[in-house]
Write a protein that binds this DNA or RNA. Sequence first.
DNA 1: TCTAAAAGTAAAAGAAAGATTACATTTAAG
DNA 2: CTTAAATGTAATCTTTCTTTTACTTTTAGA
Lengths: 66, 66
Amino acid sequence: MRNLIKVERAIHNLTQAKLAEMISVSRQTINAMELNKYVPSTVLALKISEIFKKPVNEIFFLDGKD
Amino acid sequence: MRNLIKVERAIHNLTQAKLAEMISVSRQTINAMELNKYVPSTVLALKISEIFKKPVNEIFFLDGKD
DNA sequence: TCTAAAAGTAAAAGAAAGATTACATTTAAG
DNA sequence: CTTAAATGTAATCTTTCTTTTACTTTTAGA
């Protein structure tokens, strides 16, 4: 899976730390997500969708490895 | 978090076992998801979204506990 | 250039997802 | 009513997410 969190963060002018705080996770979790180190839970995806006001499907995408 | 997997399964006439097979998880995983026993990964949410041809946001919803 | 904020990285530990096996209960169809 | 399919449930185990702590590297601004 890949995601556009870094892009959305740029659009909304948010640091990893600020975004992390907004969805109640650690900064490392945001960082690891952006670097595709792991797959986040659906709750996190929904919270990010809410913050960026975009559907989950426009932020997260399945790729070959899924 | 809550979800409408059971409803979508009914619409598409799929058993838990069939859906499980389609997204390569165990039947118990589908069952537990429907009963809100745990939060699935975003990859699973995207696969379910694909199968039911509906956005993740129309199948999975944040609730008070999130 | 110097500094501070931001981002990357990593190890260890805890929490939760998901598999597996197995059995009980419910539902639908004959 | 009987039977088989479907669903619910539970225990144990493995894998993966997520936190915490801490350090390094990069980037932007004074």
